[in-house]
Amino acid sequence: MDSEISLTVDGRRHTVAVDTRTTLLDALRDRLGVTSPKKGCDHGQCGSCTVLLDGRRHLTCLALAVSYDGAEIVTAAGLGPEDDLHPIQEAFLDHDGLQCGYCTPGQVCSAVGVLDELKQGHPSHVSQDLEATPEPSDDELRERMSGNLCRCGAYANILAAVREAAGRGQA
């Protein structure tokens, strides 16, 4: 069964007919040619397919495209033009927060979400006081980024990048 849906991706509106079984990730990559989100595990375990969906970090592999008709999606490629990168992207470059780069678009989108959630005061598993405003400590950043795996093991530099973007500079 096909359904016509519209998606706004990195500021461009698309209308596309998708089979009900098509995931949002496959719709983006294979139907719309948006290859910034990556297919890693395809089972919600690695975070490579993370985008910002209606402003929040979101997996695209465990999502049927038909259910997201009308969604506003921002991928890592849409965060900033090449000559004016998003601060998170700059920080990943400054700290070599990547090796092969495959997980990077997901890491970058997730980091944007993490900083926004911190700004909104959302607690995490490692927050000592559920009602206090959380600080972007290394423990907090590690916990909040735990849904994004990096098989190269670039975690130390990913953490350094997110730390800098969180305003803590070279800790």
Partner: peptide, 9 residues
């Protein structure tokens, strides 16, 4: 439980 992304979903 889960990850930040999954908890939003």
């Amino acid at each position: 439980g889960a990850s930040g992304q999954i908890r939003h979903q």
